[in-house]
Write a protein that binds this DNA or RNA. Structure first.
Lengths: 228, 228
DNA sequence: TGTAGCATGTAATGTGTTACATGATTCG
DNA sequence: CGAATCATGTAACACATTACATGCTACA
């Protein structure tokens, strides 16, 4: 349901073709949304049938014809209504976090490897974003213009940068955390199997481990729980 | 593709019914993933056909029968392979951030209202999460046990808490940012319409605005760009 | 000469959501 | 007495992804 409004939003800024819209989704809006051309084209046709946008075909030299869309008054109205509607709570789907949740099923060294690989990927994402933001920042400083449009775009970009930075930080902290608790991966599942026969073993090794880990644990959580 | 592994992951911890799995998704895993019963039940049947899990029906007094699933060796193997596979880059879909991106299309006061409403919703989410985490923390402290399983679960919970906190912080900063640049919403679109006829107006009001906003702008971005 | 970019689409498949269907028990 | 919880599912629909189809230009 949001894709159509993403398209309307972009067309509220400039006239564009499906191809242009796709590029914009991949570029600035990659922090926020993503879509495929095969979804954009049918949506554009639908929006045109509904009178939200109108198109004109522009022939180009040495390139295929371009179908350029412009938003209509109906389209602007629909967009504004959507902007005044609070969104339903976000439906997070973070594959890596889900994997992390279940990583007690693989050896600690593999856990550390996966965390390091993922961290690197996020770092690359961040540096690409940074480059992009700096270019945009330079361009507006040269043009010497400031508008609400630019303001909101940068607010979103800032959120994107923050998110990447904090995810990377989390990876780092979690790597350290796993490193210092590595030994927990080796000794598996004593208590559940036969609680009676290994009370002593539990009372020694398990509690010892717990005391050892407690500090690390509380340190890892520092600043997240105490204040309320 | 990840739902099946979420189910396998949960069944690697304990035996559970579709209904139990759904509750777990809504509870701890809500930070990470979400799913509907009407998607879980068919997936369970599919996984059983593929030999990843096996079921037994447990009759209950005063309650409907329960179909409890347990993971098989094949299931564990599939889960471990998935855990060793780095995920494709996350496909973010943040409706509110997309709305924010286009909010130059509504009055500044409405922008502020939407930001405040959304901030409040996130604050409620955070306090629910905090309550949940504190309960879990208390329970493991009482049980005096520490395992890799618990460790990874808490790592994920920490990420969830962090994310909420930072989103709320972003809302606050952006509210202040918009408040101090409010006047930008009133004067609209001079340059594009007729660049020739209003050069003077541009060179006065627009540049003046720019100088005024520049400090606020750089302040809003402080700490995000400079280091590289 | 083949890969990437420009440009627009359809078809098939996969994933996710809402609605429908059933039925007992418990709590306010 | 109505709503919520427990419990399992199917069917219809909406949304998303991959594969297929076409064709021209620029560049290495």
């Amino acid at each position: 349901m949001s894709l159509r409004f993403g398209i309307l939003g972009l067309l509220s800024k400039w006239e564009a073709s499906g191809y242009d819209i796709k590029k914009e989704f991949d570029d600035v809006l990659s922090v926020v949304w993503h879509s495929h051309l095969s979804q954009i084209y049918p949506e554009l046709n639908k929006l045109e049938k509904e009178g939200m946008i109108k198109s004109k075909v522009i022939p180009q030299a040495g390139k295929p014809d371009k179908k350029v869309y412009a938003i209509t008054d109906n389209g602007v109205e629909a967009l504004q209504n959507w902007l005044l509607t609070p969104p339903e709570p976000p439906k997070i789907k973070d594959t890596f976090l889900m994997q992390t949740f279940f990583m007690d099923n693989i050896p600690a060294d593999e856990v550390l490897l996966q965390l390091r690989i993922y961290k690197k990927e996020r770092e690359q994402r961040l540096s690409r974003m940074k480059k992009n933001v700096l270019e945009r920042l330079k361009s507006i400083q040269e043009r010497n213009v400031m508008k609400s449009r630019i303001l909101m775009a940068f607010a979103v970009l800032r959120r994107g940068l923050e998110q990447e930075k904090q995810y990377i930080k989390w990876c780092e902290d979690t790597i350290k955390f796993v490193e210092s608790c590595k030994y927990l991966w080796d000794k598996q599942e004593e208590e559940e199997i036969d609680p009676a026969s290994n009370v002593l073993q539990n009372d020694n090794s398990e509690i010892a481990s717990f005391k050892e880990v407690e500090d690390i644990f509380l340190d890892y959580f520092a600043g997240l729980i105490e204040e309320e």
